[in-house]
């Protein structure tokens, strides 16, 4: 038995491996309900976090030769990020449960030692009412930090705050 290697921050210079094309998960020709996920990343006090990495993974629709299921985007000077992907469907949960459609998100950047893991759900999805993870959040304000809101045609907005009053719910992964 061995022990997993320790995390170290991705730092400010991860752009050496950034490829802006990776922000579009449909670039290999995937077809389906194409959506744009936008948001603003902030730290305590609502200060934008530029130059950070917002990376996503979704197990639905299943990854294929034309759909990687994974993408990442830089945050610009105002902390804004933008990813294009396919709208996920319901995802099996543990036991006989079903999870509402969601996208897994890691926040990486300078000053973030490991990764901050969270999820984006979608406002108005009927399954949100019975989603096992959302059900753990009694406080509507806390719960709202995980729910992307419609922000135009096929566009969803989820702002993410690493610390403070509007702190996003981060998940122990």
């Amino acid at each position: 038995m061995s022990i997993a290697t320790a995390f170290q921050t991705i730092g400010p210079y991860w752009h050496l491996i950034e490829d802006p094309a990776m922000a579009d998960l449909t670039r290999f020709g995937a077809e389906g309900e194409v959506i744009t996920l936008i948001g603003t990343l902030t730290e305590n006090g609502g200060v934008p976090l530029p130059g950070s990495c917002v990376e996503i993974w979704q197990s639905s629709p299943p990854a294929s030769e034309v759909f990687p299921g994974y993408g990442r985007a830089n945050t610009d000077e105002q902390g804004n990020f933008r990813l294009v992907t396919l709208k996920p469907g319901p995802v099996p949960g543990r036991g006989n449960t079903q999870q509402a459609p969601h996208i897994a998100i890691n926040i990486l950047g300078r000053g973030i030692v490991t990764r901050l893991y969270t999820r984006a759900y979608f406002e108005g999805e009927p399954l949100n009412a019975t989603d096992p993870l959302l059900a753990m959040l009694d406080d509507p304000a806390r719960r709202a930090t995980l729910i992307a809101k419609a922000a135009g045609p096929n566009t969803w907005r989820l702002d993410i705050c690493t610390q403070g009053d509007n702190e996003t719910v981060f998940i122990d992964i």
Partner: peptide
């Protein structure tokens, strides 16, 4: 720079799913 960037609230404990 970690001081303003680490979550102050405990992480939500949630068992792994297929995600």
């Amino acid at each position: 720079t970690t001081r303003q960037r680490h979550p102050l609230r405990p992480l939500l404990a949630f068992p792994h799913t297929v995600t």
